[in-house]
Simulated assay, not measured.
Amino acid sequence: MRADLEADQPATLLWAQIHQAAPAHEIPAEVPRPVRELLEVADGVRAGDVELWGTADVDYRRVMLGSMPELTGVSDEPADWYYLGDLAREPLLLRRDTGAVWWFPRTSGDPFYARDEFEELMPNLEYFLAGYVFGPLYLDAATDDEWWEFLDRHGLTAEDGDDEEPGE
Rank of each mutant, 00 (worst) to 15 (best):
M1S: 15
M1P: 06
A3N: 06
L5G: 01
E6G: 03
D8C: 11
T12H: 03
L13F: 10
I18Q: 14
I18T: 04
A21F: 00
P23H: 11
P23F: 03
A24G: 07
A24S: 12
A24W: 04
H25Y: 13
H25A: 14
I27V: 11
P28Q: 06
E30D: 12
P32V: 06
P32F: 05
P34V: 08
P34F: 05
V35G: 04
V35D: 03
R36W: 08
E37S: 09
E37M: 05
L38I: 08
E40N: 10
E40R: 14
A42V: 03
D43N: 11
R46W: 01
G48H: 00
E51Y: 13
E51Q: 15
E51K: 14
L52T: 01
W53R: 03
T55V: 14
A56F: 08
D57E: 12
V58G: 01
V58Y: 01
Y60Q: 13
Y60V: 13
R61I: 04
R61N: 11
R61H: 13
R62D: 07
L65V: 04
L65K: 02
L65I: 06
G66R: 06
G66W: 07
E70C: 07
T72Q: 06
G73S: 07
A79R: 15
D80Q: 15
W81Q: 02
Y82N: 05
Y82A: 06
G85A: 02
L87R: 12
A88C: 11
R89I: 05
E90Y: 03
P91C: 03
L94M: 14
L94Y: 02
R95Q: 10
T98C: 05
T98L: 06
W102S: 08
W103R: 14
W103E: 14
P105A: 05
R106Y: 07
T107I: 10
T107N: 12
D110R: 15
P111W: 14
A114Q: 13
F118V: 03
F118M: 09
E120D: 06
L125E: 00
E126N: 10
F128N: 00
A130S: 11
A130Q: 15
G131E: 08
G131I: 09
G131R: 08
Y132H: 13
V133Y: 01
F134A: 09
G135Y: 00
L137G: 10
A141Y: 14
A142T: 12
T143N: 13
E146K: 10
E146W: 02
E146C: 07
E146I: 02
W147Q: 00
E149Y: 07
F150V: 01
G155C: 06
T157Y: 05
E159L: 13
D162G: 11
E165D: 11
P166C: 08
